[in-house]
């Protein structure tokens, strides 16, 4: 840049000639950019790969896809390119890696309980199908990480072989008795009390969640139902959704699948102030016939919203919209 600005005259001209004010501005600006640019490189984050504690074990063709498109941010084997290491891009890359690893880490895979590992794999398929992952900016800078329709099919075929896909309740279904009935209304660490009257609410949908071998019925309270009817988004404060989850019994000779054991009741309550940190939704889950509140601290709600935010940010973080 300097050469282009100053190189028009002969060497002697250069010695004696005064720069025009326009040229001087260019030189100063270029100098500052260079100075700040070089300066930034000294504070540029260093990329470190912590040791691999437990690498994910999946078929080779599945691993190859993850390594190609996800490992840079979701493993301890990140391989940033030279241009990823230049500030200020390096700041973005480092923060993506930090955030990516904190969500799940292929190099620390057994940190998650088995059911969570399976759910994460299904979530991965969905983030890829909806072009949320790998991050758009990343594939733009690393075109080789783009995934194809064939890659997606390979992953779908794989998740369909996971055990949850084929889980059925074969033993006699557990019936509630007096010993199960909680004495007091259970309350979640997020401050949500078990909404026992949901059975009088309107059913929004029924689902076959075959990824984990469960079936569900989703209810909405009056505020929720009115908002759905009025096509009101985001849902207003007070809107509440209850999802009842059962296992599945094996199909009978006519193909009918009946609910198996009761598993849990999950709740989402809209309160834009109280639950501002989780997009205005409070989350709760009550497990088993005893309706034991899930989550030692209220922080469990972060994992709930992370998945809902990743996949349904445009419908106020709710999956079950009413169907025709």
């Amino acid at each position: 840049m300097l050469a282009a600005t100053a190189g028009r005259g002969s060497f002697t001209d250069m010695e004696t000639r005064k720069f025009t004010s326009r040229q001087r501005k260019w030189i100063i600006t270029a100098g500052i950019v260079l100075f700040v640019g070089i300066g930034l490189q000294f504070t540029s984050p260093a990329f470190t790969n912590p040791p691999v504690t437990n690498e994910i074990a999946v078929p080779d063709e599945v691993l190859a896809i993850f390594q190609k498109a996800c490992y840079d941010c979701h493993s301890n084997n990140s391989q940033p390119t030279w241009y990823d290491r230049i500030a200020p891009a390096s700041y973005l890359v480092a923060s993506d890696i930090r955030e990516g690893r904190s969500r799940f880490n292929f190099s620390d895979w057994d940190k998650n309980p088995p059911a969570v590992r399976e759910l994460l794999l299904w979530e991965m398929v969905n983030t890829i199908e909806q072009h949320k992952m790998p991050l758009a900016l990343y594939t733009w800078a690393h075109p080789e990480a783009k995934l194809t329709a064939t890659d997606l099919t390979t992953l779908k075929n794989y998740v369909n072989t996971l055990p949850g896909r084929h889980r059925v309740d074969t033993a006699a279904i557990m019936q509630p008795d007096a010993s199960h009935t909680p004495v007091n209304t259970p309350v979640s660490t997020t401050g949500i009390a078990y909404p026992a009257d949901y059975k009088n609410w309107t059913i929004i949908s029924s689902t076959d969640k075959f990824d984990g071998g469960s079936m569900r019925v989703v209810y909405g309270n009056d505020i929720m139902v009115r908002a759905i009817e009025a096509h009101q988004l985001p849902f207003p404060d007070g809107a509440t959704i209850v999802k009842v989850v059962w296992g599945k019994q094996p199909a009978d000779s006519a193909g009918n699948v009946l609910p198996g054991n009761f598993q849990n009741v999950q709740v989402m309550v809209k309160d834009s102030k109280q639950y501002a940190s989780t997009e205005g939704w409070g989350f709760a889950k009550f497990d088993g016939l005893q309706l034991k509140p899930y989550g030692k601290t209220a922080d469990f709600a972060i994992t709930c919203i992370n998945c809902h935010r990743e996949l349904v940010p445009d419908q106020d973080f709710v999956f079950n919209i009413p169907t025709k």
């Binding site: 299904w122 689902t207 075959f210 990824d211 419908q315 999956f319 079950n320």
Partner: peptide, 8 residues
């Protein structure tokens, strides 16, 4: 928005 669930 979720491959893994079928609904009504």
């Amino acid at each position: 928005h979720w491959y893994g669930t079928n609904m009504n």
